[in-house]
Amino acid sequence: MSFARGSLLSSSIFRKQLVALTGLVMVGFILGHMAGNLLIFLGPNIFNDYADKLASLGELLWIIRTGLVISILMHIYFTAKLTRENSKARRTRYEVYTPSADNKFARMTMIYSGILLFCFLILHLTDFTLAEKEGAASVLGAQKLRLFGLVWNSFLNPWRDLVYILAVCSVGLHLSHGIQSFIQTIGFNHPRYTPWILKASVILGIIVAVGFSSIPVYVMVRQHTIGY
């Protein structure tokens, strides 16, 4: 698809602002999702109640889901376009190139951390969201624990833990650059706050990676001893 020259949607800045806005929607979702997931530490009843509450939102849940799907599709569409244009803007590479600004690894790998977390997203949805929550996979110690049991059982598999931890680390990496980038892209930069925003972005990225990872680690440590 191409947009008329000089129109907003063909402009480098406006498209970046759409990437930033859709990114922000997903950041909101990720933080909410993490807070919900961490309820697993409070035991099967609270965790399952939370899942039921979400499911009982009905139409509202579908509105949120639609918003998220639109956001992710727009985000991918425009970042793919931006990344392609950026590599076309310098066809001859430098023999020696020495980046010197901060957070180099995260900045240079945005498209890869993005692709990685997208592959994971699909896996994650089929694993948990679309899975049957009453079946054999939810049975833990002869008890049907529904979503709690499903999550617990799946994290008993160390390979799945590894993939999950890698994936949430790539989310954290993406956000360590993404959050401050969002703020700059929409046009906020202030000598007093920006240095803190740069730090906060990295810290939030770490919090997201550690927060999500804590669940499989906890399951691996507890194994079959859930003392509720």
Binding site: N86, R90, A101
Partner: peptide, 19 residues
Amino acid sequence: VTQMDNEGFGNCSNHYECE
């Protein structure tokens, strides 16, 4: 900005290497 885009420069990804 329109002229900048037409010249074939890349998009800003906030790498801050410029600064």
